[in-house]
Design a protein around this nucleic acid. Sequence first.
DNA 1: TTGTAAGCGTTATCAT
DNA 2: ATGATAACGCTTACAA
Lengths: 333, 333
Amino acid sequence: MAKRMDIKTFAKELGVSTATVSRAFGSAGRISEKTREKILKAADELGYYANYNASNLGSKKSGSICFFYPEIYTEEPDYFVSEVILGINRNLDHRQVFKVTPFDENDNRILNSCKQQILDGRVSGAIILSGTKGANILASLAEKVKIPYVIIGRNPKFTTNTVDYDNEHGAFLAGKLLKRLGRKKVAYISGHLDKLKKRGFAKGFGIEMSELITVRGGAGFRYGIQAMETLRKKYPDVDGVLCANDNLAIGLINHAQKIGVSIPKDLSVVGFDDIAFSKFCNPSLSTISLNLKELGSAAVRLLEKQMSGRDKSTPAKCENEFIQCELIIREST
Amino acid sequence: MAKRMDIKTFAKELGVSTATVSRAFGSAGRISEKTREKILKAADELGYYANYNASNLGSKKSGSICFFYPEIYTEEPDYFVSEVILGINRNLDHRQVFKVTPFDENDNRILNSCKQQILDGRVSGAIILSGTKGANILASLAEKVKIPYVIIGRNPKFTTNTVDYDNEHGAFLAGKLLKRLGRKKVAYISGHLDKLKKRGFAKGFGIEMSELITVRGGAGFRYGIQAMETLRKKYPDVDGVLCANDNLAIGLINHAQKIGVSIPKDLSVVGFDDIAFSKFCNPSLSTISLNLKELGSAAVRLLEKQMSGRDKSTPAKCENEFIQCELIIREST
DNA sequence: TTGTAAGCGTTATCAT
DNA sequence: ATGATAACGCTTACAA
C-alpha cells in the first residue's frame, strides 16, 4: 500500500489538533459546524482518509455486516442465496460495509476462518443462513462474543433473533394442490431441509409420511435430471412431484421433456423457493414462494433493531420475524 | 463486542513475551517450533485470537480481497456476476478474506464508500468488473494507491492487469451462425457493452452496422419481454436476434412462445454470457459463452501474481489474460 | 468548542 | 530464540 497522509500531518497542515479532525468525521458532536466543514473540505482536497484499522482499534468498534451461508452448490451459483443477498443489500444502510462469506461445511479451514472473523472483531453484525452444522457453530459464536446476529431459517437451538419461514406449511400447500388436481401418486424429490417438507407434503396430499415416495435429488439442475431418470425407471406411475428446490424442478422438467414426459399432463411439478427464473421457464414453474428478497429485508430489520436498541455490552434480543410461504401456481401443474 | 483476552495477558499467562506470541502466529520464523506449538495450543485452549484491527495496524498490512461490480440488475440477481464470483471463490486461497461489493453507478454515496474502502486500507487487492464509469474510477484509485488490482473486461484506459474477452468476436460468431442458418433479417437486442457486440454481429452476418436493426433491451427478463413486443410490432419480418445477455434472451423467448412465435422456426435467438440456466430452458438457449467461471479464476491468478512477485512498494504489472469466447449451439437457433 | 495525551492491541526493531 | 519497547494512526477522556 502506498503511504498516505496521516491524521497528524493533516491536522498540522490545517492548524488544528488531531482530536478535532477526528471529531469532524465522527457523529458525536463536540465540534462547531464551521470547523467541521472546513476540515471535511480540506480532507477532500488533500486526500485525507482515516485509516480503517487504526480507527476501529481506537474506538474499539469493529467491522462490517457479514452474511455467512453454507456453499452447497458448487457447479452452479446458488440462486436462493443470490436473491436473499439482493434483499439484504437493498435494505442495508449503505454506509455499512457488507461482506458476503460462503463457508464450506466440510472444510474446516474455511469454517475456522469464519469463526476467527467473528472472534477477532472484524464482524460487527452477522446474518447467518441456517440449516447446517456450520451455521450453528457460527451462530453460537456470535452469541458468545455478543455481537448482533440474526439467523435465517428455523433453528431449534436459537429461539430468538431469527427470520423464520414455514417449510412444512409450504409443502403442505403443494400436497393439497396436487390432491386437488386429482393426482394419484406423488413423490418428493429431496434436497435440503427435507424432513419438514416431506411431512407437510404428505399431510397436504393426505397420506402417511411412510407412504410417501422419496427420490434422492440434491442441489442443482443436474440432480433434477437424475431424479427424473429414477422416477421413470422405478416409479413410472408417479404423476406429481414436489422438488426440494426450484433448480431441481427445472432440471427435472427439462429432462422430462427430453424423454417425452409431458408436463403437466403426465407429471405435475412443484418447486420450492420461487427463484426469479421460475417465472420464465417453459412451462413456467409452480412453486412455493419463500419470498426470498423479503427474507433478506427482514434479516436486516432485525439486525438493525439489535444494533440500535442496545446497551453497549449486550445486543437486544428481538422477536422473530416470520415470512409467509405462498403457493404460486403456474404452468407446471 | 465482548471483551476478549489480549496479547499481553495471554503472554503473561504463558510466561512469554508478547513478541513471542506474535511470532507464533506469523510466518516470519525467528521462533522455535517447540514454543510455537506450545503457544498455538494454549491459544486454542484459552481462546486467544489476535485482534484483526490491531494486527493490521501494527503490520501496516491490510484487508481483504474485494470484488467490486456495478449493480445493474435490481429486481433480479445478476447471474453473470454470480458465476464470476463462483470462479473467484474457487480459486482464492481461503485464508484470504473475500469481500463482494456491488456499487451503484448513480449513487455517489455508495461509490464513495467503495473509494474509501480502497483508500483507507481495507482492501489489499481489488477485482473490478469493468464496463462503467464507476469501475474506471475505482480502478484509477487502486492504481493510485498502488494496491494490486485486476480489471475484468476490456478497458481502453487500462492496458495491463486485465482479464479480457472478445465481445466483438463472440457477436461475430453469432452473426455468422444466423447467416449460415439462412436467416434473412436480424436484429440486435441491446443491453450492455453494446457497441462491440453490434459491430461483430453485423460483420458476422455480413451487413453494415448502419443496416443493423437495434431494439432496446436492458438487463433482466422483463426487458426481453418488452423487446419481443417491439419486435412484433415494428419488425415482424425479423427472423433472427442476438441478445446482449442471456436473461434478455430468456425473457424474449418466453414471451415469443406466449404470443405464438415459434422458436427457432420463426425466430432464431442467440444469447450472450452462457449462464448456467441457459442449458435448461426450453428451448435451451444458443449463446456466446464467456466462460464466466474461468473469468473469475483468471482474475485470481492475475491478482496473486501481482501480490507475490512484488517488491514491497509497487505491485507488479502483469500481462493480461485472455478468455476465449465460444459459440454454444443449442435449441433456440 | 478545542487541545493534550493516554490508550487501543498488535507488529517490528533492537538488544540480549 | 527470546524479550523490551517503540511505532502504527486513530479515538476519547480530561483539561482548558
